[in-house]
Write a protein that binds this DNA or RNA. Structure first.
Lengths: 244, 244
DNA sequence: ATTGTCAATTTATCATATAAATCGTGCTGT
DNA sequence: ACAGCACGATTTATATGATAAATTGACAAT
């Protein structure tokens, strides 16, 4: 029952629960099908045909087709005449698509995923810090120091420690001056936010201001190698906690 | 003139050149609009309405709508009733979508994009090599050596050098055992294949077999730090070519 | 000046018809 | 018996027209 307005549809309202993100029928459809795919609902049974989806959810074929096209654009499915729409293998999925990432995290989160996230950060953030040290963007470096100051304020109880920590790491990604690194903002924010929820161990652990400052100072000093090493140390600490 | 079959359309065939990837009208439309967006055709003028696109390209509204939906899924545009479809700011684009990346690299003045992407590889691949050295997946390491052998064969003219080079790097990403690193397989392959075609500079350069072997040996020897360093050296060489 | 109303524009949705691609089946000819 | 071809069935692809919903801007009323 994705149905919103009336129109002349005769579909009975008994299916669906298209989630929250239903700004319109197509978005709701996309969300419902996306979640269903990542949770493996079609691993054993075939993906439904246009007609079946339209009937099951009580929407027109236009809506189902446009939703399926969007899933195709995100790499989740592939449609062919006569053979129908098929769920693509996992490695074809675009994991860095915000929707895909969200669907995945809502259900499939685990320590395993968190470790993989953190290993990715171990690759990304040191390089971003090194680039930031090379780029010499004064305004961006100012932001890094401002977020560092925010971490200090958080330590005094004047700000949210987690939010400040996240902001610092995003500032470094931004200071790299490389749009590809900026794309990881969402991943980093997610990884840090959920770290807390999944490892009690980290809860007591307050991020070391000194080690964060070392990264900022190395960037300021235009020393890429030191920036890389200091940033790597930060992530290695997280990795130790996650790996146990 | 995206027109393929006949049907009863009366559109005159005078627009388009939807590129190569027109396995069907919608794909061709997606490709044409995607390229137009990344090359800035709509920076100064508004994005056309459904009706305008359909008329200009001689396709039905179904096709234009589905193409626009796919562009929406990739973060390039956003459609709203009455205001029409708008090109989203660059930060909203999903740069890790293979289509988006290809469009970016195919346009003129893409050296900047290529440099940024290579900087990303500088972060990713060394870490992947280090993880591979830790993971100790025998079968994956065998694949790495098989691709290395393929590079040797290519040097003797028995295989495609570019394809072999790409396959080696993908094998390392795969050997990391981390799905997020595996994600980069598609974009790395896309970036290397398209950028080589569009930049003459790198063309003559044949990759060093010895330096590639060093990476494989370090992984085999289970020496993460050496694997990381050797892989970094490989990318640094590419970076010199792009920067220089 | 603020508010409410209405018309216009554009996307969103529905419905239906036809084309194209592909798979399986069964026939046909040897 | 078997290879190949014709044909029907299924599913997506495309075209078309109609109506709904959302939003903007102009304009009128207070």
């Amino acid at each position: 029952m994705l149905q919103r307005g009336a129109m002349e549809s005769t579909a009975i309202e008994l299916e669906g629960q298209a989630g929250d993100a239903k700004r319109n029928l197509t978005q709701g459809m996309l969300d419902a099908l996306g979640k269903a795919i990542v949770t493996g609902r079609y691993d054993m049974r075939p993906f439904p045909t246009e007609a079946e989806i339209a009937r099951a959810y009580g929407v027109s074929r236009s809506v189902t087709r446009e939703a399926v096209k969007m899933l195709t654009a995100k790499g989740l499915v592939q449609a062919k005449p006569r053979q129908g729409t098929r769920v693509q293998p996992f490695q074809a999925w675009n994991l860095f698509d915000p929707d895909v990432l969200r669907w995945l995290l809502e259900r499939k989160f685990s320590i395993e995923v968190l470790r993989h996230f953190t290993q990715l950060r171990r690759g990304i953030e040191p390089e971003a810090a090194a680039l930031a040290a090379t780029a010499r963007d004064g305004a961006a470096i100012d932001t890094v120091y401002r977020e560092l100051e925010r971490m200090r304020a958080a330590e005094r109880g004047e700000d949210d420690p987690l939010a400040a920590d996240i902001a610092f790491h995003l500032a470094i990604l931004s200071a790299s001056g490389n749009p590809f690194f900026l794309q990881f903002s969402r991943v980093v924010a997610t990884a840090l936010t959920t770290s807390i929820r999944f490892t009690n161990r980290i809860k007591g652990h307050t991020a070391s201001i000194a080690e964060h400052r070392d990264v900022a100072d190395a960037i300021e000093a235009r020393d890429p190698e030191r920036a890389r090493a200091c940033a790597a140390l930060l992530i290695d600490n997280v990795l130790d906690l996650v790996d146990g």
